[in-house]
Design a protein around this nucleic acid. Sequence first.
DNA 1: CGCATCAGGATTGTTGAACAATCTAGACTC
DNA 2: GAGTCTAGATTGTTCAACAATCCTGATGCG
Lengths: 221, 221
Amino acid sequence: MSQATDPQTTRIPHQLREMLISGEVAPGEKLSEQRLAQGLGTSRNTLREAFRTLAAEGLLIHHPNRGVFVAAPDEAAILDIYRLRRVVQRGAVEAALPGHPALKDMAECVAGAEQARGAGDWRGVATQNMAYHRAMVRLADSPRLSACFDSTMAEMRLAFGQIEDSAFLHEPYIELNAGLLRAILRGNHLTALAQLDAYLNRSEQAILGAFARMRSATGSR
Amino acid sequence: MSQATDPQTTRIPHQLREMLISGEVAPGEKLSEQRLAQGLGTSRNTLREAFRTLAAEGLLIHHPNRGVFVAAPDEAAILDIYRLRRVVQRGAVEAALPGHPALKDMAECVAGAEQARGAGDWRGVATQNMAYHRAMVRLADSPRLSACFDSTMAEMRLAFGQIEDSAFLHEPYIELNAGLLRAILRGNHLTALAQLDAYLNRSEQAILGAFARMRSATGSR
DNA sequence: CGCATCAGGATTGTTGAACAATCTAGACTC
DNA sequence: GAGTCTAGATTGTTCAACAATCCTGATGCG
């Protein structure tokens, strides 16, 4: 999957991104230049270039003179992300045209999520759910908007990495996603928007709740 | 204004960004590592790190093994940017709450634009216009959404850098901006949305028209 | 004349070493 | 126990070098 085509310049950032969204490195963790460069088989300078790319995407945080850390979105970040989602995804639904290719992608994500649920693969459900929403944003036919939304969704992955990523955080949304898609396909934008709001509110609450439980379980800060 | 605090790591990208949005380097121009590093008083490696940051923001384009170029948004990019603007700015207007601090910023931009027009400073009018719209997006209270919008607006600067940046590309919008702000302050969201659409359509057409004239004037491609 | 081929030079990609600047951790003092 | 200080580790930054790639112009052919 991740082959060496252009090598290094493109491979290292890709590889790093994979490590981040797969949870191979934990949110908040410090990434040592020396150690990581050795681990990736590259030099410090090349790795630092990749750091800049990922930092600009919001996946890494650069503290001058202190090092780079895996982003660890907190409650404020979640609120921010959902404010963004409300704006972007509402816009996408309103822009939806019948027969748009992204609608097929969304349908496939719903099917894929159901299949993953059947296999008890909650991580797969989460992945399909994210793919579903990214496909939804593609309804707006704006690569720039999609790019912005995609990196925001990658940040969400880092949020999930901090909380217990259990089933009930994903299971309820399979049905909501399916219903929302049906409303869009039916051309019923009002219903679709209402269902989108319902999804976003419920999802946001669930994540914030998980954060609250984490705070009270482990040390406060 | 641009002093050396954290030096280098933050100064070089800032300085580069200034060069880009000020038009000191032309859209499409190739940036030689050796020459630019010397000009900025830094090393190739440090400059390359800055390149990565700016490339992630969309201001520079990185062609592997060929070099980095100043982004030169074309017609497709303009269409894309305006699709994004429609989604984001509509969302911001809908989210606007009475008394929001950004409303004062918007008012100041309108005043600033009128003043610049009085002085015949069209570049100043353009700057105030952009600041106005960025303030509008701040109505949504989402730093991430604002960051996305801000870098998109920076790209617009590069678009203007390619066309004749004459008065009529900016003058008409001072009034439209003022009217739109009044509608928001009045709490009349429907009128505000209508005026926003009017602004976006007119502005988009004007830019695309300028592009068309440029194409027919200079060589096609 | 147009076009393919092919050096040669220039530029980017990438690394390793080195040193300055800064931070971090642990020892020490009071 | 709190504050201070030193030593070590890490980041910031540069340089020099070489491999890989691209670009330019010259050459030769049809």
